[in-house]
Structures are given as C-alpha cells and as structure tokens.
C-alpha cells in the first residue's frame, strides 16, 4: 500500500469526489426545505425549487410591470458594466504604475511610499466621501472598485517587475537598449501575463466592492436587487442571484485564464502554472 500522499485519484474518481460535496449540500438543502415547508407552506427562509423557478421566470423572462425591462438581465448588464469599467481602469493604471515604479528607481522612491499608504486605507471607510464627491451616479460606484483594487494591483505589479532577473536587464543594456526600449521590449511584454494573474486574484474584491456600492446607492444591479428584496425576505430571489453571481465570477476567471494561456504560452510553460 502506497503512502496516502502518493495516491492519486483517476479522472473519473476526481470528478466524482469533486461533485460529491455539491450533491450533499444540495440534498441537505432540499431535505431541510421540505421539512420546513411541510410544517408551514408559507415559509420564506428555505424556498422550494419550484419557487426559485417561478422567481427566475418572473425576473428573467417577463418584462417588469413597472418599467417594462427584464430586470434580471438589466441587473446583470449594469453590474458587469460597472465591474468591467472599474477593473479595466484599475488594471491599466496599475500596469503603468507598476512598470514605471518597478523599472525606474527615482519614480519608485517618489511614488511607492504614497501607494503603500493609500493601500492601507480601508476603501469602505471612504465610500461616503466618494458619494459626496462623485454623487450617487455610476462614477462613485466605479471609483469604489478602483480604490478598492487598484492599490493592490499597483503594488503587486511593481513587485512583479522587480522580480524580472537582473541578468535580463543587463543583457538588454549590452545589446544597446535605452531605458525606454527596455521598458517596451523586455519589461512590458513579460508583465502582461502577470497582470492577468493579478487581475484574477483581485476579482473577488472587485465583486465585493461592486455589491457594496450597489447595496447602498443604486437603482439597478445584482447587488441592488439582493438588498432590495431582502426587505420581503425573498430568499427565492436572493439565492438564485447569489448562484448567478458565482457563475459569472467563475466564467470571468476562466476566460482570463484561457486568454492568458493562449496569448502567453511561454509564461505558462516557464512558471509551470496553468
């Protein structure tokens, strides 16, 4: 008998083992839900799958009686738009910041301490300031995402740039490169896949800040809807929304991973990660 640490499950076993906790959780829910509903058919806490179905149908496939919109899709679109703009702006800013501070000691000495200080400010604590300064519109929500994740991305990318082996920078200099040329041909292309990795890591926080901003001041969005229907204890809406957000997060992560593997095969071969 081999040691436990040397035993690997085969493909089928791996799938089954991975699936098992999900099925158990599902069974647990159905059992508990049925028990509660048997006692009180109007129970709202653990709705049956039928009520999930009708809630989804009402929100996703029937126009809202008040506005004529399909609320579910409208919410999804608004949230993804905010998330996309916030993450894209943060990533672009962090890329510029990371490359400049990582490559140029004078810029690093000048800006790095400030970024460290900024990254220590809890973003939620300055949310009221954002609403005061930027109003209650889209800008404040996008700004919260940016303030929430950009400092982390900046510091991470600076670190990644500084991890590029000195040998490569010296080599480029012996090949006659100027600082600008080194940034362009040696640093920037090598930092792009690392940017994708950092963005993937920061997406969890990005969702957190998005939902927080939507919960407090918004008229649509996935976070807004969840916090709105909380008043009526509408678990039949909240739970499908949470599952939907999880699915979206999963696919965004998957998309970024595939993009990185496709565009930067050398990076994944080099680091051995996938």
């Amino acid at each position: 008998m081999k040691r436990l640490i040397n035993q690997e499950p085969n493909r089928v076993a791996r799938w089954l083992l991975g699936l098992l906790p999900f099925l158990l959780l599902l069974a647990l829910y159905v059992g508990a839900s049925n028990a509660r509903l048997a006692e009180n058919p109007n129970d709202k806490l653990l709705p049956s799958f039928d009520s999930f179905g009708s809630a989804i149908e009402r929100l996703a496939f029937e126009p809202s009686r008040r506005t004529g919109e399909y609320l579910f899709w409208q919410d999804t679109l608004s949230s993804l738009q905010r998330l996309g703009i916030g993450v894209a702006l943060s990533a672009s800013f962090a890329l510029a910041f990371g490359v400049l501070t990582g490559a140029i000691p004078y810029v690093r000495a000048n800006l790095s301490p400030l970024m460290t200080a900024v990254s220590l400010v809890p973003p939620m604590a300055i949310l009221p300031i954002l609403f005061i300064v930027f109003g209650l519109g889209e800008l404040a929500k996008v700004m919260l995402i940016i303030i929430g994740i950009a400092p982390f991305l900046c510091r991470d990318l600076q670190q990644r740039v500084m991890e590029i082996p000195d040998e490569q920078l010296i080599k480029a200099q012996t090949l006659g490169a100027s600082s600008w040329q080194i940034i362009q041909r040696v640093i920037l292309p090598q930092i792009l896949p690392r940017l994708i990795t950092s963005v993937r890591l920061s997406l969890g926080s990005a969702w957190l800040f998005l939902i927080a901003a939507e919960a407090i001041a918004s008229t649509d969005g996935l976070g807004y809807r969840i916090f709105l229907v909380r008043r009526y204890l509408s678990m039949d809406v909240i739970l499908p929304y949470v599952v939907w957000i999880t699915i979206l997060a999963f696919f965004i992560d998957l998309l970024l991973r595939l993009l990185s593997r496709r565009c930067f095969p050398w990076f994944h071969a080099q680091t051995g990660n996938n």
């Binding site: 082996p165 040998e167 490569q168 080599k171 480029a172 292309p189 050398w266």
Partner: peptide
C-alpha cells in the same frame, strides 16, 4: 549561467 535570453 542562467537568465541570459528573453523568455517571451
């Protein structure tokens, strides 16, 4: 000895 070429 190492890291002499550009991996990308």
């Amino acid at each position: 000895q190492r890291y002499s070429v550009f991996p990308h």
